[in-house]
Amino acid sequence: MSNYTILSVSDLRKYFTTAEGVVRAVDGVSFNVKHGETLALVGESGSGKTTTGHVIMGFYPPDGGKIIYKGAYELSIPMKKRPLELKRDIQIVFQDPGTSLNPKRLVKDIISLPLLVHRIVDKRRVYEKVAELLEYVGLSEEYMFRYPHELGGGEKQLVAIARALAPNPSFIILDESTSALDVSSQAKVLNTLVKIQNELKLTYLLITHDLGVVRNISQRVMIMYLGKIYEEAPTEEFFKLPMHPYTQMLLSSIPTLSEEDEKIKPRGIESVGEIPSAVKPPSGCRFHTRCPFAKQICMEKDPPDIIVNNNHIVRCWLYE
């Protein structure tokens, strides 16, 4: 399998001007996504995950940095000005199943839009293709003629996934796509996502705050806090050797269901405090206000990149 870099983000910034001041939602983020992998972007709400995804989609332009897609496309251009093939190749599945499907359109119309826009199939074959896509995500063809309100939350997300798959994309952003679901529907959606990824060689950017989900479908993890990335590691290693105190705090907060799971959680760190406002982020390491190990230097200077091993990087003064 060719592991070329499909998406390369460097020093990405996005600021919002609000009544309270400038929100530094994404503040110098760099990462690469390899073809065929699932890269998880994890952090508390307000850390800038959705903003990162939306900038990649082109919903608003970045205020700095570069996003290069497949080595050829510059993604700083807004969605509307992007060439059609980009609109086909990059897809998104949103968080809230209640608002991600138009309530007045039949499932068939929802899924056939990208098929027709991108001429994936002949007009006369649309029904068949929609049925095939529904079947593929685990829904029977009779769902074609339902309205969104006639579906459960998990079914709606599956339809949203079918819609994203319709134009044969390479890259899908999953923004908390299972967060609003019950575990039983979440399981179905997760299994479907894994299956189609393997069969279609898709690349996912998985935005989530649920480390259980991360463990199950991602190959690499990035931890984001207040607009910056503080740790990245392959999933296996991430759960074995979480380094950043913030990562440890996230892990130790998970209510587990078994003894084995409990053993994964780091000891000696407890969740304290709340994420501060992104308008006036703390100086130095932004996590220092909640960090039990904070030193003088943490308040003063941005932590350096510490390379733990090839693929594991942590940004923390503790390991200097």
């Binding site: 138009n102 839009l113 826009v117």
Partner: peptide, 21 residues
């Protein structure tokens, strides 16, 4: 709303967004 963003990002025309969505 996400469903409008979804249609737009998939390349739907403005006419489609206005009159169909």
């Amino acid at each position: 709303e996400p469903f409008i963003l979804a249609a737009e990002s998939q390349g739907a025309s403005t006419l489609h967004i206005l009159f169909r969505e």
